[in-house]
Design a protein around this nucleic acid. Structure first.
Length: 295
DNA sequence: CTCCAGGGATGAT
DNA sequence: ATCATCCATGGA
């Protein structure tokens, strides 16, 4: 095993992976193993540095063919720092938050938490499965989908699976998807996978759309409403202003920000303005804070 | 606007 | 072992 270091100031790996934005990373030894797209990685944090193992990974042949040599593989280090968004200006982002005692407490509690850049389809599909589920259960569904339909890779003696492509899920059936404990979400996931696979909808091209148009496009997909659309915008399209409102955040807005009797529409309007250009970060910090301190 | 189905894990009894 | 609780979307 050869660990390669990357500088990672203002970053907390464990906190980031446990903040309810991504669901497939698993603890291993001092670090974590997980897939970044179609590459398996081991990542470990020591102080201000990340140590990355990129030696694993069967099938090894295509990777060796691409990178040519084992000496230095900067594309893979670049992939890791891009995935973990180590280039986001975290001090500037935190300084942009509104200056109230609720936000300040969340900001202090969540030091080093970053919004990472997830692959679009993987993020969309996972959040379709997240509806009406808690984090622990979403992790299980994500793992079941990967194990049943994804491609196996090995790293550090552990077997990981890539997230199945839209085409792979599209050729599956509702009955088969049900085996991953998706319940009524199987229908939605299958229908959406088929739209993406048949290129009726093109996730990549939507990256050029402004926020409102992108949200509309996402909401046309089966199983995607405003909350899930905002999650996908935030976690896969880098729309750092997108502010997903789930039950936890709604409680924060109603109980801590005093918006007790506000309609959902008014809550949305308030949070989009009040939390500013990095509202998505503010939301993630409020969410992680309330979720891990609420008994 | 309100009401409600939906399903499996998780925590309480 | 049972029971209540958690939850986003979409349709009535």
């Amino acid at each position: 095993v050869r660990l390669v270091p990357i500088q990672a100031p203002d970053f907390d790996l464990a906190r980031t992976l446990d903040s309810g934005q991504v669901f497939h990373w698993e603890k291993m030894g001092e670090g974590f193993v997980g897939m970044i797209g179609d590459e398996p990685f081991y990542v470990e944090q020591r102080g201000e540095a990340l140590y990355v193992d990129m030696e694993g990974g069967a099938p090894a042949t295509p990777r060796m063919a691409r990178s040519g040599s084992r000496e230095l593989a900067p594309p893979f280090l670049g992939l890791v720092s891009h995935y973990f968004a180590l280039d986001h200006p975290l001090p500037e982002i935190c300084a942009s938050f509104p200056n109230d005692h609720i936000m300040n407490a969340a900001r202090d509690f969540c030091a080093g938490l970053r919004i990472i850049r997830q692959p679009k389809w993987e993020c969309l599909a996972t959040f379709i499965c997240s509806s009406m589920k808690q984090v622990a259960h979403i992790r299980q569904i994500s793992k079941a989908l990967r194990q049943r339909f994804g491609t196996a890779y090995e790293i550090g003696g552990r077997v990981l699976h890539s997230f199945p492509s839209p085409a792979r899920l599209a050729e599956s059936s509702e009955r088969e998807l049900q085996k991953c404990a998706l319940g009524y979400r199987a229908q939605n996931l299958l229908a959406t996978a088929r739209r993406i696979a048949s290129e009726t909808s093109d996730l990549q091209s939507w990256a050029a759309l402004p926020d409102d148009a992108l949200r509309e496009k996402l909401c046309e997909l089966p199983g995607v409403g405003p909350k899930i659309a905002n999650c996908v915008m935030l976690f896969a399209y880098e729309r750092l202003r997108a502010f997903p409102i789930d039950v936890w955040i709604e409680r924060v807005l109603r109980e801590k920000y005093g918006k007790r009797r506000w309609s959902a529409t008014r809550l949305r309007a308030f949070s989009e303005n009040y939390f500013g250009e990095y509202g998505g970060y503010a939301q993630q910090y409020l969410f992680h804070h309330v979720r891990t301190t609420a008994q």
